[in-house]
Nucleic acid binder design. Structure first.
Lengths: 112, 112
DNA sequence: CAGTATCCATGGCGATACTG
DNA sequence: CAGTATCGCCATGGATACTG
């Protein structure tokens, strides 16, 4: 039994889901795993997400040390997000999920 | 771009999260991956889940063909759930998530 | 451009009671 | 034992307007 971030975990699956779960987090993180992206680029690439929600998730991921936020002192402002070395470990999990999802959709989905 | 179960997917990660996401589904499925379990056993092993929610998730997983429901015509009734061969593929994803979560909690969690 | 600030909607989940 | 049936909450997310 472990405690992390103020919560108790009996099973390790739970913490993984708490970090990657929800409607958007895994998606945001996976795209950042492909390349460094600006805030606005992320909003375009993740279809339909609002600024508010995107901001929240980016903050969480940064707080967990999985991504890094780099601010360029320019006008207009530029902010780039990228994954950390700690994030790269987590990205391997996402890669497995992505591969399974691809095979699954290939087998059971309808191409449109 | 794929469609499955009436929903469109741009990124395969999304379908994986739709199947495994939420507070309980991955946990239920992972425990079934360890061994065949009865309804009541599942309720005991998954801490705090209600019958209603457990029933809902089991139905979803069964509908997706990931688990199997076997009813024994006895009194009192006995129902056993187990994963299918299709579910075993998905279980590999869960195993990766479990391993990452375990390493993560070992590194950053507090043992209690 | 990259966010905050508000307000509002919804569906996943919880609690409890009941049943074949 | 293995579920249904209700009822209700609340965290997550959506829409829109505003700002440094």
């Amino acid at each position: 039994m472990y405690r992390w971030n103020g919560k108790d975990y009996r099973c390790p699956i739970e913490v993984t889901m708490d970090i990657l779960g929800g409607k958007w987090r895994s998606l945001i993180f996976w795209h950042l795993g492909q390349k460094k992206l600006r805030f606005g680029e992320l909003q375009k690439i993740v279809p339909g997400i609002s600024k508010k929600v995107l901001t929240e998730h980016l903050k969480n991921l940064e707080k967990g040390g999985f991504i890094e936020r780099e601010v360029f002192p320019e006008v207009p402002p530029r902010v780039e997000y990228s994954i950390t070395s700690k994030g790269k470990k987590l990205l391997e999990v996402l890669n497995v999920m992505e591969k399974w999802g691809r095979d699954f959709l290939e087998a059971e989905g309808e191409k449109i």
